[in-house]
């Protein structure tokens, strides 16, 4: 009888999900699962995809979205050479620090210098107020951690970017909003950002809407979890060691306890 209750308890807990997330009315439609190279125990990032994703971010998303946790130097981790990183950084300008006379401004203008690999990625807006003012009152979220900060992660991002549609008849839209079933409440302040051929890939990959969304979702998974590959690589070694070691401990336990009987 006790066993039955264990089973019932577990079934209750697991199937309904003490742990599992669910789609309540306020959260958007659940994103369908996609295949990603970084899925699973042996998952890896596809460097070419990350570079394409960076291109998408820079050419499309960066107009409104910051990536505040990322430095230009980090780009060497996704396959850019050191020189390439320097070149990428040098395309942007950051405020220069005080010079020997303590001057930071000239004729009332902030003196700028070219960005270096140790600088953070330059943000599109000076502050939250500026961002809201430029976006009809809405604040484009920082994207550094977005795949960890949303249920569904990369799947959600891909679904959101490809999920724009016309609002069904009778659905009341607010001014300047777009309809998207994957967004909580189905109304999002972001206009559909991506279309086929929104970017032209340097590596010749066909830039379909789906491909672009996929690439940028992969790139943003890397920005959120740059340790992912290290983590899985070390994790496999740790688990293999533990499984063997635990099997040995079991043998020891059996041996020790055999004396008792």
């Amino acid at each position: 009888m006790g066993k039955i209750f264990i089973a019932a308890g577990l079934a209750l807990g697991l199937s309904f999900g003490v742990f599992a997330s669910d789609a309540s009315a306020s959260s958007g439609k659940a994103a369908p699962s996609q295949e990603w190279t970084f899925d699973g125990v042996f998952g890896n990032f596809d460097r070419a995809q990350l570079k394409r994703g960076y291109q998408v971010y820079q050419e499309v998303c960066a107009a409104c979205h910051s990536l505040s946790q990322i430095y230009y130097r980090n780009l060497s981790e996704i396959g850019f050479t050191e020189d390439e990183v320097k070149k990428i950084a040098a395309e942007f300008e950051v405020p220069r620090g005080p010079d020997d006379e303590g001057e930071t401004h000239e004729d009332g203008e902030q003196i700028m210098r070219a960005a270096k690999p140790f600088d953070k990625l330059v943000q599109p807006y000076a502050n939250e107020q500026a961002a809201r003012a430029a976006n009809n009152g809405a604040l484009p979220p920082d994207l550094s951690l977005v795949t960890k900060a949303r249920k569904g992660g990369a799947n959600y991002l891909h679904a959101l970017l490809t999920g724009f549609a016309d609002a069904p008849e009778g659905f009341k839209m607010q001014d300047g909003m777009s309809y998207n079933v994957y967004f909580p409440g189905a109304q999002i302040a972001m206009a559909p950002p991506i279309d086929d051929d929104a970017v032209e890939y340097a590596d010749g990959t066909k830039a379909s809407k789906d491909q672009i969304s996929r690439d940028v979702a992969a790139f943003l998974t890397w920005t959120a979890e740059p340790e992912l590959e290290d983590r899985k690589r070390i994790g496999i070694k740790v688990l293999i060691f533990l499984i063997i070691f635990t099997a040995m401990l079991y043998a020891v336990k059996r041996r020790v306890w055999a004396k008792l009987h």
Partner: peptide
């Protein structure tokens, strides 16, 4: 011995 094995699991 028993605790060590349990710890492994």
């Amino acid at each position: 011995a028993k605790d060590a094995f349990g710890l492994g699991v």
